[in-house]
């Protein structure tokens, strides 16, 4: 694994966290009940901290060195490497929960491997902290999947709709390109295709307990890892990056 390959992996990890944190932050002040406002914000804060850690590490591998803020605020959409799933708009509460749930179960498996690998100790340390956080996130999101799926007829239909819409982005979590291949061979990333089986089993259990069904064979969409994003990302970044871009060279 070359430095550039390592850096790319770090950016992917960082961008996943950053983009989802930014989406969850949009909820602040608008959740269905006060308690959920606080819960969603806690998850956003965990993700934001993780994004900073991964992006700082990635930034050190640039010449000259870049900060986490340089990477967050001074790249265009095409340079972001997050999963398409994570940039999808919040929609209603069920859409947000479904996005979170599908990602949490993947993210936990990935973090468990990252925390135990010995290729890079900094990554292991970030991931060890992440594992604890994601366990709670996964508990939270899966519980809500069950409440909404097995709640009222209305909530069942809504969350089934979320699942139907978002399922097409799940394949990308396990898709492997040359960068991933190098990281997997080095032992940094887990064998993603093997992860998929465990993920599918665990996610499937929750989904069936929630009385929901996995949509059959939608056309899977990928591209986020290569910078080919849905239009939602550019809109989100325009808002996120407005100040540093409007006033270049300033500190805040």
């Amino acid at each position: 694994m070359t430095n550039i390959q390592f850096r790319e992996t770090l950016i992917r990890l960082g961008d996943d966290s950053l983009i989802l944190a930014q989406r969850l932050a949009e909820w602040c002040g608008h959740a269905p009940i006060l308690e959920e406002d606080i819960a969603l914000t806690n998850i956003a804060l965990d993700l934001l901290g993780r994004a900073q850690n991964y992006l700082k590490l990635a930034g050190e591998l640039f010449d000259p060195v870049k900060s986490d803020d340089d990477l967050a605020y001074h790249r265009d959409a095409g340079e972001f490497r997050n999963l398409l799933l994570l940039e999808q708009p919040n929609g209603h509460f069920g859409d947000t929960i479904c996005r979170q749930f599908l990602f949490d179960y993947f993210s936990l498996l990935r973090a468990e491997h990252l925390s135990s690998q010995t290729v890079n100790e900094y990554v292991a340390a970030i991931a060890a902290k992440a594992v604890k956080e994601i366990r709670y996130h996964a508990y939270y999101s899966s519980k809500w999947i069950k409440r909404l799926g097995d709640g009222t007829a209305e909530s069942h239909d809504k969350i089934q709709g979320s699942l139907d819409n978002l399922w097409k982005y799940t394949h990308e979590m396990f898709a492997v390109d040359d960068f991933d291949r190098a990281s997997i061979e080095a032992g940094l990333l887990p064998e993603l295709s093997e992860l998929k089986q465990v993920w599918a089993k665990r996610v499937g259990e929750v989904i069936s307990e929630a009385t929901l069904t996995i949509p059959s064979n939608p056309n899977m969409e990928i591209g986020g890892r290569q910078g080919e994003h849905t239009p939602h990302l550019a809109v989100m970044l325009e808002e996120m990056q407005v100040l540093p871009r409007t006033y270049p060279g300033t500190t805040w």
Partner: peptide, 13 residues
């Protein structure tokens, strides 16, 4: 208003 169905669902569950 947007949260109404969510609060209802949790109670029903």
């Amino acid at each position: 208003d947007d949260g109404e169905w969510v609060r209802k669902a949790a109670m029903a569950y």
